[in-house]
C-alpha cells in the first residue's frame, strides 16, 4: 500500500479508519505523508501513515522526516498541505483543525529545495 493507493480507497473506508484511530488515540493526529512527485531527487518514505502527538510543532515533524530520509547534509526540506507550507511554530493540532480532509486525515507532501548550494551548482 502506498499513499497514492490509500487515497483511492473508498471515502467511507477512510472516514471509518480515521474515526477509529482518532477514537483510540485522541491525543494523536493521523497524518498521511507522501513525497511531492516533482521532488524526484528525494527518496520515498517507506511508510506513509503517521500518528504524531497533537502538541508537536511542525519543526519536530520536519526534523523526524529528514532524519528518516537520510537527507544529504546540504538539503533543506519543506512540507506542504494543500500547496501551502506551514510555519515551524504551528502545532499539529492547529494544522489538523484548519486543514484536515473530509475523511478525517491530514494529508501532507514533502519536497526539497536544496539550500546552500543547489541543483544548479556546477
Amino acid at each position: 500500500m502506498s499513499a497514492a493507493a490509500f487515497k483511492t480507497k473508498p471515502f467511507e473506508d477512510r472516514l471509518e479508519e480515521a474515526r477509529g484511530v482518532r477514537e483510540r488515540f485522541p491525543d494523536r493526529i493521523p497524518i498521511i505523508i507522501e513525497k511531492d512527485k516533482r521532488a524526484t531527487e528525494l527518496p520515498e518514505l517507506d511508510r506513509f501513515k503517521f500518528l504524531f502527538p497533537s502538541h508537536f510543532f511542525v519543526v519536530q515533524l520536519l526534523y523526524v522526516l529528514k532524519e528518516r530520509l537520510h537527507l544529504p547534509q546540504t538539503d533543506a526540506f519543506y512540507l506542504f498541505i494543500n500547496d501551502q507550507a506551514p510555519t515551524n511554530s504551528q502545532t499539529l493540532q492547529s494544522l489538523y483543525d484548519n486543514n484536515k480532509n473530509e475523511d478525517g486525515f491530514l494529508y501532507m507532501k514533502y519536497s526539497s529545495q536544496a539550500a546552500f548550494g543547489g541543483e544548479e551548482e556546477e
Partner: peptide
C-alpha cells in the same frame, strides 16, 4: 498496526 506512532503508548486508549 500500519501506523508509525510517535506518541507514548501509555496514553493510548
Amino acid at each position: 498496526g500500519d501506523w508509525i506512532d510517535f506518541g507514548s503508548s501509555e496514553k493510548a486508549v
